[in-house]
């Protein structure tokens, strides 16, 4: 079997006495859509920051795209894609400029950048908006563009931090279509969301409570094991037991 794209073992992050992430161990496979859930303050963001090479773990191990996040965080950053609801594109650059900028950052050649720009604009149907400032695009379009840009360099894995917050339901579905396509292309998807219907679209989901992994399985088996008919209920039962008040 192929090497997992993400592998953590007892991964831990402490801030003083506070254990933000407490010995988490899991593997994510190639092309898998992995949903990372937890209440506010459960440690999701801290865990994600470690996996993206932005925060050095206190202890434990983590390999992302075959690279050790302790020793080569810079290399990790180059090998992954990342987008979040809060920040993903430069609003005062145009659609085309954003694509070029990110493609350049990720080291594509001029020729590749040109091809990729044309391809993306056509795929997203943004021909008329190519020279429009991103600030003037509706949020749903912006998020679709942000996702395309985050995988412009065909990374092995892309991290999506609440990518669909505030987006209309129809656009959210379209966004998930893009996630499915990327996954079919072999890109691993690591995604957090507060919309628990979206958790159903993941191959596997992991639910964190107080810095620890409380459940990790396919949506089907999680529901079966807890004897409930939706993920919201599974989540609610686990998250309700949290001791931390969310910060």
């Amino acid at each position: 079997m192929e090497e997992p794209v993400i592998r953590t073992k007892e991964l831990t992050k402490r801030f003083g006495d506070f254990v933000a992430v407490d010995r988490i161990t899991f593997d994510v496979h190639k092309g898998e859509i992995f949903g990372f859930l937890g209440a506010n303050g459960a440690g999701k963001t801290t865990a994600m920051r470690m996996l993206c090479g932005l925060s050095i773990p206190t202890s434990g191990e983590a390999m992302v795209a075959g690279i050790d996040v302790y020793h080569h965080p810079e290399q990790v950053k180059r090998s992954i894609g990342y987008m979040s609801q809060k920040f993903s594109l430069y609003e005062d650059l145009t659609v085309l400029e954003n694509i070029r900028f990110y493609a350049g950052i990720y080291g594509l050649t001029d020729k590749q950048i040109k091809n990729k720009s044309e391809e993306l604009i056509e795929k997203l149907g943004l021909q008329k908006q190519a020279k429009v400032l991103v600030a003037s695009l509706p949020l749903g379009w912006r998020q679709k563009l942000a996702f395309s840009v985050a995988i412009v360099h065909q990374p092995k894995v892309v991290f999506l931090d609440e990518p669909t917050g505030g987006v209309d339901p129809s656009m959210r579905k379209q966004f998930w279509d893009m996630i499915y396509d990327a996954s079919a292309d072999g890109i691993t998807i690591f995604v957090t969301t507060h919309y628990l219907d979206e958790a159903e679209y993941c191959d596997r989901i992991c639910i964190m409570v107080d810095g620890r992994i409380k459940a990790l399985d396919t949506p089907f088996l999680l529901k079966k094991n807890y004897g409930v008919d939706n993920i919201t209920e599974v989540f609610y039962r686990l998250a309700r037991t949290a001791q931390r008040s969310g910060d």
Binding site: N40, H194, F235, Y236
Partner: peptide, 13 residues
């Protein structure tokens, strides 16, 4: 105005 945006399910309930 959108009091629960970005808030988890437990807090939303």
């Amino acid at each position: 105005d959108e009091p629960t945006t970005g808030v988890d399910v437990v807090s939303r309930r």
